[in-house]
Design a protein around this nucleic acid. Structure first.
Length: 425
DNA sequence: ACACTAACCTATTCACGTG
DNA sequence: CACGTGAATAGGTTAGTGT
């Protein structure tokens, strides 16, 4: 239906999606989406809607009749049997219970009017009256580094799209559905800074309006981290750089726009994890030469991470299948020849726009990678030259995992080289 | 155009681990 | 026991799909 987005374009597009204003309910305003033309503005903010097959519905209805409140074990078992994600089964039961309750109430209301004899509230037929409670899902342990990644994403966008959630899932290893719940809980417990209540800030779709300073306690800022029980104290000097590697897509801040502050979220442990992963991968490079492209090694964590925010070879065991993404999540891509998307993928403009948007904020993310996938591949080729690989080896072997040189995030390329690269792209 | 319903949201509560 | 936080719930809304 829609052409497939390259990863860089996908990120830029996601920015568009995420920036769509939401109404007071947190839902994106239809008007805004419509103004971008239904043809050129694909649906990417939501998960692709599943069309349940008859046998799946039958199984769900059967189980619902037996128990409208299935526990995690039952849901997981059913998920395996009918080939649906457990989270979708949970949602189906939520919706089904409500439909059931609604019908029950309608019936009871009708009978109430007829007979006028219901003096006492009766529990709806779908309520868990005599059914023993099944076990809940076990708490999902979220490590400080994972939490910091989530917090950073939360501060950037309180309502992440399915693409963002899946990306966070890949980066943290936490299931997407758990990330969704985490954001729900987080929103509930950390209402936005607004004089008109927490929902007011949602109306603009982004958390920090350009004219509005960020919340005074950004949980992932060094100050917040120092006071947070989940984030270890950090050296703000060191971690200003760390943030760009661990949390933000630092293409603009660390590479394309040298000198732009890259933010304050310190995710040392994640950075360390990345560094260790790099080392480990380097160690087995010869046995799995294709798993991590040499260019990522060559550029060290700086460029490598820059280019791999959404398809990092470091975290997921495979490169993100951006071309096939629409198959798994329903991410539909707009035609890029014209329209808002095309404009949005003009990287420098995006970077500039984001920088403006975040002006005054502690964080200075440039979320949208201006490079479409083919450009990334071209860059991959450029960076896989033996010369740059040598640089990468030197970079990796030059410092231990726990401490990086001062210019850790500095690109191995000069500004002229960057410009040349950009010109080529 | 409309009905149905998956997906997503808030508000609230439960439940569990930790200090 | 208080607190933080993940999980689950009810209920409202949006938007994709089928008729």
């Amino acid at each position: 239906m829609y052409p497939v987005l390259a990863s860089g374009e996908r990120e830029a597009f996601e920015d568009v999606i995420d920036s769509i204003p939401r109404n007071e309910d947190g839902n994106r305003q239809r008007k805004q989406a419509a103004c971008c033309s239904p043809c050129t503005f694909p649906r990417g903010s939501r998960r692709r809607r599943i069309v349940l097959k008859p046998h799946q519905k039958e199984a769900l209805y059967t189980l619902f009749q037996q128990n409208p409140y299935p526990g995690i074990t039952t849901r997981t078992q059913l998920a395996q049997e009918i080939g649906l994600p457990e989270s979708r089964i949970q949602v189906w039961f939520q919706n089904q219970r409500r439909r059931h309750l609604k019908q029950s109430r309608l019936r009871s209301t009708a009978s109430l009017k007829e007979r006028q004899c219901h003096s006492e509230e009766q529990p709806p037929s779908g309520a868990p009256v005599c059914i023993a409670k099944e076990a809940r899902r076990k708490r999902t342990p979220i490590s400080p580094s994972q939490r910091c990644v989530l917090i950073q994403a939360f501060e950037k966008n309180r309502f992440p799209s399915i693409v963002t959630r899946e990306d966070l899932a890949r980066r943290t290893g936490i299931p997407e559905c758990r990330i969704q719940v985490w954001f729900q809980n987080r929103r509930a417990r950390h209402p936005g800074q607004s004089t008109h209540g927490p929902l007011n800030a949602l109306a603009v779709g982004v958390d920090h309006e350009p004219s509005q300073p960020p919340p005074p306690v950004p949980s992932c800022s060094p100050a917040a981290l120092n006071s947070s029980p989940h984030c270890p104290p950090i050296d703000p000097v060191d971690d200003i750089q760390t943030f760009a590697v661990a949390a933000a897509p630092p293409l603009a801040s660390a590479v394309l726009v040298p000198g732009v502050p890259s933010g304050g979220c310190a995710v040392r442990s994640l950075r360390d994890t990345v560094a260790q992963d790099m080392q480990a991968v380097w160690g087995r490079e010869h046995s799995h030469p294709s798993r991590i492209p040499a260019n990522h090694l060559s550029a060290g964590l700086a460029l490598g991470e820059c280019l791999s925010f959404t398809h990092s070879p470091l975290w997921p065991p495979h490169r993100i299948q951006s071309q096939g993404h629409s198959g798994s999540t329903g991410m539909a891509a707009p035609p890029l020849s014209d329209g808002p998307m095309q404009r949005c993928v003009q990287g420098s403009k995006v970077v500039a726009a984001r920088a403006e948007m975040w002006e005054g904020s502690v964080l200075q993310p440039a979320h949208a990678s201006p490079f479409p996938d083919d450009s990334l591949e071209l860059l991959d080729e450029l960076l896989s030259t033996p010369e740059l690989q040598d640089q990468g080896k030197a970079l990796l072997s030059g410092y231990p995992q726990e401490e990086e040189p001062e210019g850790f995030l500095e690109s191995p390329l000069t500004e002229e080289e960057y410009q040349a690269l950009l010109d080529m792209l």
